[in-house]
Amino acid sequence: MAMLSETFRKRSASRFARSKRLARIDYKWGYLMVAPLLAGLAVFFIWPVFRTFYFSMTDWGDFGSYVWSGGDNYRRLVRDPAVYRAFGHTFFYVAIYIPVLVALSTFLAVLLNKGVRGSGVYRTLYFLPAVLMPAAVGLAWRWLLNGEFGLVNTLLKLVGIHGPGWLTEGRTALPAIVLVAVWSMVGFQAMILLSGLQGIPSAYYEAARQEGAGGATLFRRITLPLLTPTLFFVSVTALIQAFQVFDLIYMMIGQVAIDHADTVVYLFYKQAFQLGAKGYASAIVTALFAVILAITAIQLRLQKRWVHYD
């Protein structure tokens, strides 16, 4: 008996050691394989984060010369009305963009999931704007939204509406940017949501239908709850991306309305690349980084309340 248990112990111990050794080899290979990615991440993402934080405490001169300036940039930041304005515009943008984007892309995804004829074509069409360069999108929409000669206002005129100078009037500039941003991203997000929809087992629907549930109930009780993990992913990533909106504004809003549409990253660009104040610009993006971090943390915390993982 003793012998037996002894043997057993030995055997299991050696098996354990072997598997540990194997695991170590596996890990080694694993690390080796992700090493290029990790190196890239470290060099291009993580190191710059620290550098930027360091630069936010420096004052820049010409041709890359800089001197330590401690908290000066942050003291200036909290007193700069342009910073508050930029954060205001950014929050305004995010507050409209995210709900509209998520609602529209969910709607589209559900439609596409119905398997209407030619849904493959629609899928491609909706997705197309996502592969276009934002600069090209901005340029094209700048033509469409031209106050005098744009297609949008020409069409509005046909139905008797005198359209505004979309990109040159303060009250329409930022909403116009939201419109274009939603247009360009809605197909992409719908594709992600569509994959989420297709992951919902059809058995649930069949069972519910046998119980007599109608379309609206199916959507509310089955589709929506089971889609929440995807919705969560979409809203977190879209939010982070929305906070960094820059290219469309840079491409589309001219000098005259920019005071009504400049966002934080636009302000960063202006300070860093037009005015050469790279230290102050670093402080501005560091502040934005903190804001995004905080909001993302809140989202992760809140997800327990509404995200269902089966």
Binding site: F44, F45, I46, P48, V49, R51, T52, F53, F55, T237, I240, Q241, Q244, V265, F268, A272, K278, A281, S282, V285, T286, L288, F289, I292, L293, T296
Partner: peptide, 10 residues
Amino acid sequence: AGSAILLSAC
């Protein structure tokens, strides 16, 4: 995404 923006700073 958060760090990407910082990257552009430097």
